[in-house]
Design a protein around this nucleic acid. Structure first.
Length: 451
DNA sequence: CAATCCCGCCAGGTA
DNA sequence: TACCTGGCGGGATTG
């Protein structure tokens, strides 16, 4: 898969056409790009390509096409139906790709925060970090059927986040519990005893579903490379590590299937590549980090020359961002995309800072290490008061949330902030109704932690 | 024949 | 309740 020669089908529309259609409309006539097949009856009564080749339908190739189609400056919004139509696949396949891409962007933390909580983090922590949290995703869900394309610029940071999150887990676990890496990474066991009355690990079914999600599995798969001293790993080994011991053959097989899906997508992005283990001759995947080069160039999958056999391409964390953005394609290389993103990020931060400072007044006075968004009132309140400070704090944030409207040139970010505003509105109304009950159950300090 | 992974069913979630 | 989302495993294809 990793060295698949030349893609059989090239997106037939020009990049400019694609970008325009992506942004402008969902009603563009479809142009199934992957092939122009001769159809015969296939499985499930559906029509199938006569010269059927599953290589042409692979998830990796689809991902390459997806990236080739949408990884452009002027693409900010991706319609699920539009993507499916343009790529000539069912929506189901788009979900697969999108989930993996999104999970490589790591943190959906801010997407789940209330507007107030979001502002609080902007103020309390370094705004650059906050900005990265938002931007450094490949894409994020914007609404039903619609995603925002962010780009690859922040992938290294996202991977670092993944590693950090694992380190934090490690710290919390401590040394005494004797957990192994694999135990930490492994997803919960389908243990029938969980269903027993009074079982300690009773979980909601939706949680259970999330725990098995392709996105989480992707993150854990990547973590295997990031946190363990391995450069290569077979999918069998990965499945064992991720599942833990004592699993039925069936669930192991299912996990390996999913890992194949993930590996194909990550491989098409050149996060990993497929190799043959020298000793066992078994296929395995080697981590390239984001040092690899995506294969999609104008929709054509380029045969990537196999890297040196013994030289690891593994990157050290903390090193410079790689070419994944800049060298992504010849098309993109003519556009200073990364610089543009950085610049626009700077402008965003600048605007944001000005707006916040205007509304909060000046006054970061050292002491506690706040970011540039440090609100004057927040620190004072913390120092001066206990509960009163909390109350004022809440009120300040409420008024700020109600009035603060950063103006973003980047539509996707604007949309994100709109999302937070909506989230804040609904959250606040729920909170107002339920606050007394919450106070009863949890007490004020706990509630304030949500803020 | 083992490895690979496409395909679409269908359960759960959401508007 | 219609539609969206995505876990899941059967089984076709590939090597």
């Amino acid at each position: 898969m990793a060295t698949a020669a030349v893609m059989a089908a090239v997106p037939s529309s020009s990049p400019a056409d694609a970008a325009e259609a992506v942004v402008m409309t969902e009603a563009v006539p479809s142009l199934p790009q992957r092939q122009q097949p001769v159809f015969v009856e296939g499985r499930g009564g559906k029509l199938r390509d006569h010269a059927y080749s599953r290589k042409q339908k692979s998830l990796g190739l689809l991902c390459s096409n997806f990236v080739a189609l949408y990884n452009r400056d002027d693409v900010e919004s991706i319609g699920l139906d539009d993507a499916a139509r343009r790529l000539g696949v069912e929506r189901r396949r788009i979900y697969d790709i999108v989930n993996v891409l999104e999970s490589v962007g790591v943190s959906s933390f801010f997407l789940r925060l209330s507007w107030t909580g979001f502002l609080f983090f902007l103020a309390r922590f370094d705004s650059d970090i906050c900005f990265r949290f938002i931007c450094e995703k490949i894409l994020v869900r914007k609404a039903k059927n619609r995603y925002s394309w962010i780009g690859f610029g922040g992938v290294p940071m996202a991977l670092r986040e993944l590693k950090m999150s694992d380190d934090e887990d490690e710290d919390k676990m401590g040394d005494a519990d004797g957990d192994t890496e694999s135990e930490k990474l492994s997803q919960p066991v389908d243990n029938p005893s969980d269903n027993k009355p009074g079982a300690p690990r009773c979980r909601l079914r939706s949680d259970h579903r999330k725990e098995k999600s392709l996105g989480l599995l992707t993150q854990n798969f990547v973590k295997l490379f990031l946190t363990m001293e391995v450069d290569t790993i077979s999918l069998d080994e990965a499945a064992k590590l991720l599942l833990g011991e004592g699993h039925a053959e069936n669930s192991m097989r299912t996990k390996v299937r999913r890992l194949y899906d993930i590996a194909n997508v990550l491989s098409s992005l050149n996060f990993i590549d497929k190799i043959q283990q020298a000793d066992s001759r078994k296929p395995a995947f080697r981590w390239l980090g984001s040092a690899g080069k995506p294969k999609a160039e104008n929709g054509v999958t380029i045969a990537v020359p196999p890297p040196g056999k013994t030289i690891s391409n593994k990157r050290a964390f903390g090193t410079e961002l790689t070419n994944i953005d800049i060298n992504r394609s010849r098309l993109d290389s003519t556009i200073p995309k990364k610089a543009k993103l950085t610049q626009s990020g700077g402008e965003i931060l600048k605007n944001c800072k000005l707006s916040v400072q205007k509304q909060l007044g000046q006054g970061s006075k050292g002491g506690f290490v706040y970011g540039p968004f440090h609100p004057a009132g927040a620190r004072k309140q913390e120092l001066d008061n206990g509960n009163k400070g909390h109350t004022d704090n809440v009120q300040n944030w409420e008024s700020l949330a109600a009035s603060f409207r950063p103006q973003y040139q980047n539509q996707a970010l604007g949309d994100l902030f709109a999302h937070y505003m909506e989230a804040w509105k609904s959250w606040y109304s729920e909170f107002a109704q339920g606050s007394s009950m919450m106070q009863q159950h949890f007490g004020m300090p706990v509630i304030n932690q949500f803020l």
